[in-house]
Each structure stands twice: as structure tokens, then as C-alpha cells.
């Protein structure tokens, strides 16, 4: 499917878009039109994953805004550098001191970027029908939803994988009794901790692109571990 031109995909799916779609960014229309999920029986080697990370002006979903988003595709277990995405978001009213400190982005970078909905829409169009992978994915998916919330009828429909959950699952197993709990557990499954534990070294961490790449390298390792635990299809991987 991935190799089909977009317009062909649209013809095949022929999914009617809501009336409001006329006002959507073009990328968002493309994304919504391609809507199709991979069968759960798909072997993991045939799945296109898009591992991504978004940087925001803070961790509070209600107040904070998307600052940048980056993702890289994986063809099964292999990271494909020529299938990647990176966008800055223009947020003239944020880019406050906090963001600059946390992400090393200065206000100028932000002013040059895309509108928030446009950046999210383009990312979603890039992802297409891929399985989205992120560390603490729920948060990033929420940010994407929020970014396109003004376009009624549009939504994020991809299957998603959370590398934090996956790490825990393949490391200790769902039935394990000696699971760490509370703050310790959260600390052990932060991206920083996992990256260190798995000996992944990626420069430019704490930017969207750097963290997306680090997450992809982490996901590669988790996939191998998962396979050893009998997880071979997309359905196996998505099961909780």
C-alpha cells in the first residue's frame, strides 16, 4: 500500500470526507482520505512504523502548545532515514523562557515555523496508515489531536504503540509479580533511562528529531525482545 500514489489510494478507499473538510489544510484532507488500518495479522516485518516525538511548551495538555514534531519511518525492524519528517511550529505567543530552556529552541525558530494545525496535518499525512510509535505515546497523540481539534470531523485514527509500555512488557512480562511500582517504575521507563540501559547513543537528544531517532533505536531493540516473547504480528504487538 505504501508504494501506491496518494490519488490511487484515495480512489481505492473512496472514503467520503465530511462537508467541513473543504476548510481543512490539504495535508489533513489527504490524511483523512487514506484512512485504513493494517490487518492485525500483518507480520511485524511488513509493518511501516513511524516513530515520532513532539516537543511542547510544557507538559500540561490544556495549556501547552506544540513547538516541533519529528518522526522517522521503520520498514519492519529497519530505520529508514530517507523516510522521515521534521517540522517546527510557529507559536508567536509562546516560546517563553520555559520552552527555550527545556528544548534549546529559541523564539526565532518558532516564529519561522508552520502553523500548529498545518505542522500536525503534514506529519499525519507523512505517517499515513503507519503504526505510530512514541514514548509515552498517549501524550503525543493528545497533542496531535489538540493541534487539529479546530477542524471538525478530523481525527487521529492510527494504531499506536507506546515504547514505555512495550519496554515494561518485554522486560518484565505482564504476569510478573516483581514489577516495580510508583515513582521508581516511572523513572526506570523514562526515555533517558531506557536509552542509557540499552546503550543507545544519539546526539541532539531533547529535540524532537533527536528523541524520535533515539526512540526508534529503542523500539528496534524492543521489537527483537518482543519477537523472542512470541510477538510476531501487529495484533500481538498491539495486544495489551
Amino acid at each position: 500500500m505504501r508504494l501506491l500514489p496518494k490519488f490511487l489510494k484515495n480512489l481505492i478507499s473512496n472514503r467520503p470526507l465530511p462537508a467541513a473538510a473543504n476548510g481543512w489544510p490539504r495535508a489533513l484532507r489527504d490524511y483523512m482520505a487514506t484512512k485504513s488500518r493494517l490487518p492485525r495479522s500483518t507480520p511485524l516485518g511488513d509493518v511501516r512504523f513511524v516513530v515520532f516525538d513532539s516537543e511542547t511548551s510544557g507538559l500540561d495538555l490544556s495549556k501547552n502548545r506544540l513547538l516541533s514534531i519529528a518522526g522517522v519511518a521503520m520498514a519492519g525492524p529497519e530505520v529508514q532515514l530517507d523516510d522521515a519528517f521534521e517540522a517546527m511550529v510557529a507559536q508567536p505567543d509562546v516560546g517563553g523562557a520555559n520552552a527555550a530552556v527545556v528544548h534549546g529552541l529559541v523564539s526565532n525558530d518558532l516564529a519561522d515555523g508552520l502553523p500548529e494545525d498545518e505542522a500536525a496535518a503534514r506529519f499525519l499525512a507523512f505517517a499515513g496508515d503507519a503504526v505510530l510509535v512514541a514514548h509515552h505515546a498517549a501524550f503525543d497523540i493528545q497533542m496531535l489531536r489538540k493541534a487539529i481539534a479546530s477542524h471538525r470531523g478530523a481525527k487521529v485514527w492510527n494504531q499506536t504503540i507506546d515504547t514505555a509500555q512495550l519496554a515494561e512488557r518485554v522486560e518484565v512480562g505482564p504476569m510478573s509479580s516483581n514489577r516495580a511500582t510508583g515513582a521508581d517504575q516511572r523513572a526506570a521507563y523514562r526515555l533517558d533511562s531506557l536509552v542509557e540501559r540499552y546503550g543507545i547513543d544519539v546526539a541532539e537528544r531533547h529535540t524532537a528529531a533527536g528523541d524520535a531517532l533515539a526512540t526508534a533505536l529503542l523500539f528496534q531493540r524492543l521489537l527483537k525482545k518482543a519477537q523472542r516473547r512470541g510477538i510476531h504480528t501487529l495484533g500481538d504487538l498491539l495486544a495489551r
Binding site: 519529528a70 532515514l81 523516510d83 522521515a84 521534521e86 507523512f126 541532539e204
Partner: peptide
């Protein structure tokens, strides 16, 4: 599509 930051990271590593 590609990401300049990721290319830079990989290029530096190479």
C-alpha cells in the same frame, strides 16, 4: 521526505 537534524546526527556518526 527526510529530517535534516536526523541526517546531521547520522552524518556526524559516520
Amino acid at each position: 521526505m527526510s529530517s535534516d537534524s536526523m541526517i546531521l546526527t547520522v552524518a556526524n556518526r559516520l
